[in-house]
Design a protein around this nucleic acid. Sequence first.
DNA 1: CACGCTACAGTACTAAGTACGAAAGCGCTA
DNA 2: TAGCGCTTTCGTACTTAGTACTGTAGCGTG
Lengths: 232, 232
Amino acid sequence: MPKLESQSRGERVPLSRERVLRGAVAVADAGGIGALTMRSLAHELGVRPMSLYYYVAGKAEILDGIVDLVFSEIDLPSPGGDWKSQMRRRAVSARRALRRHPWAIGLMESRADPGPATLRHHDATLGTLRGAGFSVAMTAHAYALLDSYIYGFALQEASLPFNPETVTEATEAIMAQFADEYPHLTEMATDHILQPGYDFGDEFEIGLGVILDALTRSIPGRPQQTPLLTAD
Amino acid sequence: MPKLESQSRGERVPLSRERVLRGAVAVADAGGIGALTMRSLAHELGVRPMSLYYYVAGKAEILDGIVDLVFSEIDLPSPGGDWKSQMRRRAVSARRALRRHPWAIGLMESRADPGPATLRHHDATLGTLRGAGFSVAMTAHAYALLDSYIYGFALQEASLPFNPETVTEATEAIMAQFADEYPHLTEMATDHILQPGYDFGDEFEIGLGVILDALTRSIPGRPQQTPLLTAD
DNA sequence: CACGCTACAGTACTAAGTACGAAAGCGCTA
DNA sequence: TAGCGCTTTCGTACTTAGTACTGTAGCGTG
């Protein structure tokens, strides 16, 4: 049980909402969201379970809080710069945050009320797109598209059993059995995914580039090729 | 408590793995994944909790099973047809399934082992893309991009508090307070999202169109504009 | 020195997953 | 018909988790 001992020695840091939430993130990172219980969190912080309730109303508030903490780790785009590189930076940063904290992805579905970091993040992103000349409607389209891609990619990455090393041997044997039933899955696995240099994570920037380039076509004032998105 | 009484009258349908899983989907659809407990499921099926364990090893197996059930509701693309319309149909169908069963989105992250419907689905999709002339690498790129978009969109749709009606009044008041702190969020809300005809769900086909068009550019044999994806 | 506020903790209740083993139903044969 | 054994269902009880309610230690202030 190599649980992280957050505090070093004698002088006990007093509890705080901050420490509770950061502790919760640490526990979830270490053992998944299932390992985050009021008891395990209390133990992590060196206190008894009921002490947590002085700082948070209940577990639900902790879940809301740590989702917002994850959002706070994402680089905010700045409205000044080139929108494309700003969006790329934001996307890469968001995906990294969600890879560090995969449990956050599933939480976002169930948690309804956004925290301040979440709101700030959305506001900065919208502001960057609007500032770049996207109409309100186009901004909505672009944002929905980008965030769908980011979250969806993170979701897939989290569910994929592909630790580049772990799986290679295990999967190969299993795949052999299904070769005739799932020929294309088998082809993809043996000819591509199980190849030496393959890393699913590399797909992220590829797809992101496709999306950003496609969005470029729809921005006003840039007479590109056929506009894929007609402002409605 | 208008719980569905699955069986009508006297003759009791015997339990089965099938009935257990379908009952689990019904409970989760009705009350969210949190409402799905071995006890609530047993009640739904008119049996005692421990009876379920004759058909499934535990709750984890139920969760795996219902995720696979959701996959089975998605239209399989057929390798014969036009890849673009096949992919569109699959995507629309998948998003519908995930909107019917929003709890499934978060589950996919934690459930590692895919069921037969899931595998069949992936195989058919890969087959359709390969059959349309995509290289193995391009197929991987396209699939990652499409599925990321689909799952991510479903995830956002599930977490959005936007029931077109419910929110309008409630949000407007709250938004007013944050107007200066989150100006762009406010603009988006008041000028777009809260407008009469707005439905976030409509964004799906827009983004899907962008992605499919962008992918078109990268298919061999179609000398389109600048290839956004270079086969690697 | 007592009052009272802040911070933390103990006890205990409820809900949920499920191990273990018993019992009920049922078809079959002797 | 009685008995056997397999299939299916269930009762009891143990464990873990969230948390309501209450208690108490520490400490600053009048």
